[in-house]
């Protein structure tokens, strides 16, 4: 089996999520865990790693931000169309090992996507986890992802949505204006029997981790999802290496003490 060979799948649904993101539902029925990713190909343009934002045996959902050539091309996909995929790849969040714990999920911008996979997983195994606290930060109301799901999440979990600014006073799902770190700072979080999952821009993750540590979280209670340039997704091209660890096979979810805040390494 050629490990670089993408396979064709069918797009079951195309949903516009925000002005520059969309969600594809794909008939990929391979087992996966939240936090894993797939390598999506657009023949003639290239490949891009996209994290899975669902938890199902019958499909995967990919929330994709139009930021590069591959993702811009994918934005033209249509329901019923074909999509080329390799994977799922990588190590996701250690959901099994964290059963019985409180979970704090902190996402920034399109970093909320992999956490959505975690939330779906929790929903399917709700009795196995205790308190769930979601902190979701966006720059503006338009960027808010998974608006359809937010209502449910608000019912079932402690949910804080923040937006950096709301210039036009738009309706925005009870979001508070301010940085997500302000919401974390104001919240009462019990580090005992807890774990925190983070995904978002490096600056936001760094600031959030500092806050979690102030609140008594240890580095081995914090899990982050790393973003890196990848080509092979197999652990050989080396572009995604962080301190000797491959983001593609050892990550993308790392326990914080495994790689530390080494954003430049």
């Amino acid at each position: 089996m050629n490990p670089y060979l993408p396979q064709p799948y069918t797009i079951l649904e195309f949903r516009r999520e925000s002005p520059d993101t969309f969600t594809l539902t794909i008939d990929l029925k391979k087992r996966h865990s939240p936090g894993q990713f797939v390598q999506v190909s657009v023949p003639g343009i290239g490949e891009a790693p996209i994290s899975i934002c669902s938890d199902s045996r019958s499909y995967v959902k990919l929330n994709i931000r139009e930021i590069g050539n591959v993702t811009r091309a994918l934005a033209k996909s249509k329901k019923g169309g074909k999509i080329w995929i390799r994977g799922p790849y990588g190590k996701g969040y250690p959901m099994k090992a964290l059963e019985g714990k409180n979970l704090v999920l902190i996402g920034g911008g399109c970093g909320v996507a992999p956490l959505k996979g975690v939330i779906d997983y929790i929903e399917h195994h709700r009795s196995k986890y205790r308190d769930i606290h979601l902190f979701l930060g966006y720059r503006s109301p338009e960027e808010i992802l998974f608006k359809k799901e937010l209502r449910e999440w608000k019912k079932n979990y402690r949910l804080e949505v923040t937006i950096d600014q709301n210039q036009h006073g738009a309706f925005c799902y009870d979001a508070k204006v301010g940085f997500v770190t302000e919401a974390i700072n104001a919240a009462v979080l019990d580090p005992h029997k807890s774990a925190a999952f983070l995904c978002g821009p490096p600056v936001m993750m760094k600031a959030s981790i500092d806050l979690l540590k102030q609140k008594g979280f240890q580095e081995d209670q914090i899990f982050i999802s790393a973003e890196r340039l990848m080509y092979c997704a197999l652990g050989v091209c080396c572009h995604c290496m962080i301190r000797g660890k491959f983001t593609c096979v050892d990550g993308p979810v790392f326990r914080y003490d495994e790689i530390g805040a080494f954003t430049h390494d």
Binding site: Y4, P43, G44, I45, G46, Y231, C232, C237, H239
Partner: peptide, 25 residues
């Protein structure tokens, strides 16, 4: 040193066709 990158190139006659190749990086 074995690092590499992967890039696509399309044919001028048919931009849907082409090749995917890898190069040293």
């Amino acid at each position: 040193c074995y690092c590499f990158e992967i890039h696509d190139e399309v044919s001028t006659a048919n931009p849907d066709a082409g090749k995917r190749s890898r190069s040293w990086s």
